[in-house]
Amino acid sequence: MSTSGTCGMFTFGGKAKEKIPFGKKEAQAVMDELSTADDADIITLGSPQLGINELKLLAKLTETKKFSRRCIIFCSRTIYNNAMKIGLAGKIEKSGVDFRCDSCTCLTPYVTKDRYNAVITNSVKGAYYLSKSNKLRVALKDIKSIAEEYTQ
């Protein structure tokens, strides 16, 4: 939402100066609009950066499995260090994932038009900027679908 507006913070429920109706139908329309590819050679997760609960989910979904293509997780150094301490980062790395800390999916030179034509991501914000700024086609999917489709 902050990508299409100029407001950096939104609240759900309670009193608000302006209300924006947004349900499953609107969410699906955004997903459809931003999905310009069915498949790609690289997966990026994060943007906003992944949190500890998303890492726990990913670890569960990829246990004993390997990604079939390159997968980069973007998360903060603090989250990564916490994930290391509890053995979570190691578990996920066993599935072939690379971590990039304190970096932006769209502004780092990892995912560029020179290297890839398309990217698979779970990030709506990432999909918008990877498409508009980086000129890549995007397969926008949720983490569960990505883990199911691209690990074996």
């Binding site: 902050s2 990508t3 299409s4 507006g5 100029t6 950096g8 932006c104 900027y129």
Partner: peptide
């Protein structure tokens, strides 16, 4: 009117 989107 104003800019929108990423602070970048």
């Amino acid at each position: 009117p104003y800019a929108i989107g990423s602070s970048v």
